[in-house]
């Protein structure tokens, strides 16, 4: 199936749950709400004509222009994206699923946004979600073991956020 077929099939099934789509992008993608994510991805995986049984990658992207002077021209509103790259072992087609999130939950600084976890569907989601939590700061609700995976347990902040400040020292070792 080509990407447009897949997206049409999804739209007939889910209707307005597919918030937006892009076929012109280099890798065609759909956008869903966090609350619908598990339902849509489960359908993508279990429907035999789609059969997306490989979850290659989960990445968190922070859309923020840290320099306030340039922010007006940046071309995007500040937000976070969690991007899922799926592929089918049988049919070999690919699809990108995106979830848009606010940078902070309820716009209160320090409260991390939340997405439901996909660990029940894919084994590969486990470590990838931990990594996104660690580096970008997104909470995956329902994850069995959501702890930092790359950085030390007592690390503060989420380094891949654009407004992250580099630590001056860590346990007595200077950082710069």
């Amino acid at each position: 199936m080509t990407a447009s077929d897949i997206i049409t099939a999804l739209e007939t099934k889910f209707g307005t749950k597919i918030k937006s789509k892009s076929l012109e992008a280099i890798d065609p993608f759909i956008v869903v709400d966090p609350s619908d994510l598990v339902e849509v991805v489960r359908h993508l995986r279990d429907e035999p004509t789609l059969a997306f049984d490989l979850l290659h990658n989960i990445s968190g992207v922070d859309y923020l222009e840290p320099d306030p002077k340039k922010a007006a021209k940046a071309g995007f509103e500040p937000h976070l994206e969690v991007v899922y790259h799926l592929q089918s072992f049988q049919h070999r087609h690919r699809l990108v699923v995106k979830v848009l999130l606010p940078r902070w939950k309820n716009d209160q600084k320090g409260q991390l946004p939340e997405v439901p976890t996909l660990t029940s569907l894919y084994g590969s989601a486990n470590w990838h979600e931990r990594e996104v939590y660690d580096l970008v700061g997104v909470i995956f609700v329902g994850h069995p073991d959501l702890t930092r995976i790359l950085l030390a347990e007592d690390w503060e902040g989420h380094p891949l956020r654009k407004d992250y400040e580099f630590p001056l020292e860590y346990h007595g070792i200077r950082g710069r």
Partner: peptide, 24 residues
Amino acid sequence: GGEAYLETECPRGAMGFYVVGAPN
């Protein structure tokens, strides 16, 4: 602007790079 994800076959497996270009 835009984003591209590409996997290649490295000796250890499929190495993917996901590059997002800023819209401006």
